[in-house]
Design a protein around this nucleic acid. Sequence first.
DNA 1: AAGTGGTCTAGACCACAAA
DNA 2: TTGTGGTCTAGACCACTTG
Lengths: 246, 246
Amino acid sequence: MRRDPNSRTSGAVPRYREIYESLRQKIVQGQWPPGHRLPSEHELARSFGCARMTIGRALGALADQRLVTRRRRAGTVVNTPRPQESVLEIHDIEAELVAEGVAYAYQSLGRRTRRANAADVAALGIPAGTPVLALTGLHLAAGRPHALEERLINLQAVPEARAERFAGISPGRWLLRRIPWTEAEHRIAALNADAAVARYLAIRRGTACLTIERNTWRDTQRITHVRLIYPCDQHRLVARFRYRPI
Amino acid sequence: MRRDPNSRTSGAVPRYREIYESLRQKIVQGQWPPGHRLPSEHELARSFGCARMTIGRALGALADQRLVTRRRRAGTVVNTPRPQESVLEIHDIEAELVAEGVAYAYQSLGRRTRRANAADVAALGIPAGTPVLALTGLHLAAGRPHALEERLINLQAVPEARAERFAGISPGRWLLRRIPWTEAEHRIAALNADAAVARYLAIRRGTACLTIERNTWRDTQRITHVRLIYPCDQHRLVARFRYRPI
DNA sequence: AAGTGGTCTAGACCACAAA
DNA sequence: TTGTGGTCTAGACCACTTG
């Protein structure tokens, strides 16, 4: 079963990908409905004329994409349709605006160091009394308010933030450069602008705003909590489902 | 270099995972900073005392997670910190509520078949004149309005929807059971409830609402477009960054 | 030109779970 | 008990890309 080197032209797709696509077509086109059991790796290796490991790679890719479930002895079975899972990329605001060719600036509105109070404890999930830095600022796009930012930084995790004035650089970007975060959680909601938010964002009171809360960890240590408030007419998030690269 | 069967106890992590973890630690703890080039697969195979393919699997997992970039001849290089990418799971509303133990019902508010007009073309991205089914309905949680749904279904892609009355089943669930979609795109935004939305959802006019628009494809064919409108106090989305399973 | 990763083979042993 | 997938080996040839 030695492979014929001429069976693939230069740059052609690898064999395991061809097999993956072939099997995938059978599933998504309904030829193999949910619950159907695929032939075993050995059988597929025989029918495709390749080594078992090549089949294993193709089937592993199908399993990665949740198209099938694989269990020893039970075999490989077609899944019922997956839950809707999308990949949401939430970028640094500055990067986002610069990518659109819009002038960006960050304007600091407030900066306080304190020991964590009850609200800080709830937001950042750290013990009461931990030193935190509370920042408020405005992201400006083309000179106009784009988003309001309320941020807490855990000074125990990022002591060097105590001395930083964040002049000309947004806290988000400053942190991103220094702290390699390993985990993040986003909460997305809508709210009506109150008087203060409306004033900062130069919108009418009551205007619907999209809020994004982000918690960031480095391993198990909490780094920062931030809430970004966007006027409804200036922002939307796009999340696209995508297959994991195989 | 035959493998010692006693080197792994039953159920232990596989060798490639151990190696993956070992290399990952060096990266996330800063021992191998961004730009650092890892030893070649051959060298690593020698130092870990395993076959090159096992190393390749571990390095492949690091690349999947964007911790490293791999290129022929150039080698495997540590990446600079990744963009903020989160996985957002948007479930079927019914499944979501049932998981929380809340009684669920779907109430149809309108149902029309027509040939795609300009608005339909914009929403669904199909040629004008294509037959579409336009549905409006309310998702009820514990008997109270939970979300308002406006949906378009491409009847060319799902002809059997023409005869379906959607009594007792939401269109989303009905579709999910029949059509194995392959791609989806979500757009998330905020809006102020207008008079009609406020009436259906039993909220005050102007209340901020979270809207989720979803477009669904099967391969290149457009299946459906749906807009869900949630009152701000009843819904939020959570997206969590996570490493891809390896 | 040479070294790197990408892919593949033809075996092998084992863990696991279903029959 | 037995068939399945999970993992691994020790090679091999090749594509790519950089020096």
